[in-house]
Design a binder for these strands. Structure first.
Lengths: 295, 295
DNA sequence: CGGCGGCTTGATTCGAGTCAAGAACCGTGG
DNA sequence: CCACGGTTCTTGACTCGAATCAAGCCGCCG
């Protein structure tokens, strides 16, 4: 694929990089993720190469650090190379709403150049230790002008964000149990897409509460409920998803909106797998719970 | 500006067009809206002309009709020329969630071509009588490849949708009163952007309930409350906004996310206008209400 | 005239938030 | 090794906002 074709200028943020990771390896893995992401957006190999060639800073961000504050005054677009970040906004009360999680390969602040006013108030924070790369807005725009497939790709990427946000809105209409289940399914699916197949979810309950729009206390109770249903289990400090397909069934999760063709097999059709001819009961939580309990 | 420069091929959908409107006039107004929209997205005049030249069907849709079902099998992109539509999705229970309203000049189904799977489940319905135009996906993509400013524009448009959806998520965290106020402010602002300056809102309470994510009953009660606060008034069948700035203050509405530079003067700064030095109380509804009542 | 869709209102239920206190689990430094 | 302060998790009791159920009303159109 020629991903690492040309020489890539990498400058290290002195003293910020975790000492344990090999920089070359880290860089390569990160760039591969960007390449995969672009590929999933329909961008051609030539264009991917061109983008990677312009990416010229890599820095490490520690857990719970603000990512955007790191590169003022925003002449660059930030790309996540490794780790998980989240974009969020704070309500007047202090309360934060997490809009979504970003994974390796994702563009973090597409809005900043295009619609500075619209993105006002949105911040991005590292949920785990992260490494990021940047690309100059001017460079990216030049490439977009040159390569139609790239312009389709970034368009698609923005559209995808919109679709995911819409699903988020839809999700607020569900009960807490379904909502949390849906959120977990989404997180799991997106992690798999970047190659993390572990069923453990490295997010604190507070994080998940802010993402689901529920109070931390109620998230906790919901988890307890999911545990008694044998869908989740404790694993030391973090949660582990025990039964993905039943979790997806409970959530009514259909991952097709995530635009990950290669993953759909595992998720899409399991929703009505458990029962035939009784689909009407699947929609209702009350009876749904009873079914799951009985089995 | 040369909007109507070249000859525009317009074919009428026989028998569907409302007999009372003059087609030429309707067509021109609609196209002007598309031009304004594209302009607000930063698209140049040459490109706007090129897009308008490829738009070649105009049809009328009556209130509460499904717009998407009208043009299968989706080789075209649908553009709203006149009227208001809404995109929505239905929950398993039958319950519908309105994602947002579309106004004259908006693209309705950007996702269908780019991310068919992601947009699955989303429908678009005419809220008032509408007229629509279409443009072939192939044509649009050809233009995008040719004109960088157009590709930035559609990118921006998708991004804008994402930002608006995000605000929608944020909105679900507010109380019903603030939420409804915010929704009304958004509707008002977007209507103004397309030249409708009337303070009356032509949406049924059910529509607003589905958009706000509240039950119709509770929307009604909230309206009553807003009326006793002298923010709203009944005007025959529909609602009329009496005091825009106090409504915006109550909602904590900052319209800048809507990307409408020309409108910001009227909205942006009024939020903390009523009181100085007491900003802390503005965030809290309880006291906020008392303030409003006292005045 | 009747019927129907949208609005209005009351009574009741219930899910989720808030408050508060305790327990388990860090990482840190003595 | 243990003592510590600080998160994060857990649980209970209470409150409250919004959904639901139910009924009556208004205005419209056939």
């Amino acid at each position: 694929m020629g991903i690492y074709g040309a020489s890539i200028l990498v400058r290290y943020q002195v003293g910020r990089l975790g000492s344990h990771m090999s920089m070359n390896r880290s860089k390569q893995i990160g760039l591969r993720h960007v390449a995969l992401k672009l590929e999933s957006l329909g961008v051609g190999n030539t264009e991917i190469d061109a983008v990677l060639n312009r990416m010229n800073v890599v820095a490490a961000i520690k857990r719970s650090e603000e990512i955007m504050s790191f590169c003022r005054p925003a002449k660059h677009l930030v790309v996540l190379l490794e780790g998980v970040a989240c974009s969020y906004e704070r309500l007047p009360k202090g309360n934060r709403q997490i809009y979504g999680y970003h994974y390796a390969g994702d563009f973090c602040d597409l809005h900043r150049r295009l619609l500075p006013a619209s993105g006002h108030g949105v911040s991005i924070e590292a949920v785990t230790d992260c490494s990021i790369g940047v690309i100059k807005h001017a460079d990216l725009e030049e490439l977009i002008a040159r390569y139609p497939s790239l312009s389709l790709g970034v368009w698609r990427s923005a559209m995808l964000e919109a679709c995911i946000s819409r699903k988020g809105i839809l999700n607020t209409r569900r009960s807490a149990l379904e909502r949390v289940a849906h959120l977990l399914c989404e997180v799991l699916a997106r992690r798999e897409a970047v190659g993390i197949k572990s069923p453990s979810i490295p997010l604190s309950q507070t994080d998940l509460a802010d993402a689901a729009g529920l109070s931390a206390v109620h998230i906790n109770r919901t988890f307890k409920q999911l545990r008694t249903l044998n869908l989740l289990a404790k694993e030391g400090r973090t949660m582990k998803v025990v039964d993905r397909s039943r979790l997806a069934a409970l959530a009514g999760f259909d991952g097709s909106y995530l635009n990950m063709p290669e993953l759909l097999a595992g998720w899409q059709l399991e929703i009505d797998a458990p029962r035939r001819g009784q689909e009407s009961s699947l929609g209702r939580i009350g009876s749904q719970l009873l079914v799951l309990r009985a089995v």
